[in-house]
Design a protein around this nucleic acid. Sequence first.
RNA 1: GGGAUCGUAGUCUAGCUUGGUAUGAUACUAGCCUGGGGGGCUAGUGGUCGCAGGUUCAAAUCCUGCUGAUCCCA
Length: 480
Amino acid sequence: MGKQNVGITVSKKDDFSEWYTQVVLKAKLADYAPVKGLIVLRPDGYSIWESLRSTFDKKFALNGIRNGFLPILIPESLLGKEQKHFAGFNPEVFWVTHSGTNEIGDRLALRPTSETLAYTLYSKWIQSWRDLPLKINFWNTALRAEIKATKPFLRTSEFLWQEGHTVHSTKEEAEKEVMKILDIYKNTVEEELAIPVTTGKKSEKEKFVGAEYTTTMESIMPDGKALQMGTSHFLGQNFSKPFEVKFADKDNVEHFAWQTSWGVSWRLIGAMIMAHGDDKGLVLPPKVAPMQVVIVPIYKNDEGKNTVLSKVEEIQNKLELKNIRTHVDDREGMSPGYKFNDWELKGVPLRIEIGPKDIENQKIVIAKRYNLEKVSLSFTEIEKVSEMLDEIQTEMLKKAKEQAKNNTLEILEYSDFKAKIEDGGFFNSPWCGKLQCEDKIKEETGAEIRVIPFNSEDNTKKCIYCKEQSISIPIFARGY
RNA sequence: GGGAUCGUAGUCUAGCUUGGUAUGAUACUAGCCUGGGGGGCUAGUGGUCGCAGGUUCAAAUCCUGCUGAUCCCA
């Protein structure tokens, strides 16, 4: 068997974009669908999504949020109820105009997001302060016709996500909810996917259309581009007014409610691929890996095979008792070397090798995917695999944090900004708060304000563009 | 939004200029040998050449339209 085209044929450093696409396809996470801009998730890709979903569901439940389901079609009359919101989404909406051969009068949108639909229903469901807070999350897909070149997980015309929509009786409670969700997002991404994020607010220019303000978490990818990892919006009463989401308070006065919406998508999978993968392929954080340990038995003849396989089964049972997701690669007719490369391409965190030599020495060989180290363990130390997985998870986050730190620069001079933007990275640069400067910087450098980190207010510096007094130090970067 | 490149077996590809039903590798199937880092030999399977139309006795090849992908720039 040749090695041509089986593995990743470019290096992550030299051709990041091609590298990414190859990893997605060759690790069998996803494939292209026969329609422009759409992808298909394969079991290994979907399994990662299911793992994230189950973690989020647990955390949402602890916060009093339950899951619901909304239909995919939204009548145009509803979608257009909040003007700014509609104007923002309209260019990328897919429309259903016919049922069979009959034209539909009020054409139907394939949901680009569900605010308008959800709030139409919320207005029916909410009458009293006793009905609040109302907190529902929806796991579904959203459709937005992408004009730009698409990329699996990062930009596709249909994407898997969750959208949460909550309603509160007070502004304070709603704002608190926005932050609670952002916190859940941050700790889940850091703990499960081992990707560090920076949280803060979006600028007025970049906020969600229809929101009072948008909070966000952003990450810097190894190629120096920023990726939005999730957003949590404070909607104020911008939707409750047009959609009449009203409630009678304890004093019997009718009030418009205060709302939030928030979402993360399968983009997180794309971020995980970029953050941790290497020239051999995918590297999965143990917590979300569909298989955490793969065992490759090695033997020369039937007799050796029986001895090895019975030991393999014993080890597999021990690991499974500790709830470690274990797979035995007993495929015939493939050399061990082929299997090693195959599992490395697919990013399985730990590989155990057992052959005649190991049986003789009462030991196994364990290879760690994230740093390609091999160590040996005696048969009596099998339970250490649990600790190794935890350690790998920790080390991966640590490594990603260092990477992010190296990609973050303090830039005070615009000439410096322009000179270094080609290499990418997060730039901490003072800003006066004016849209004009933000626009000019975007126009001249392609960089935008990705996030204004919490506690980044600073009026002691000069705006990177106009030199007037700064109000904060946002993070500028080119984005995906 | 602007530009460039490309679509031939699961994958990568030759052939296209100068029209004659497709080349090679790899993968896949079977058997034997192998087996601790992408194995060897032998014999097989697999393609309406992205889609639709046109020119022609004849189209992967020439023409038109459509569609999809990749990369670069704002």
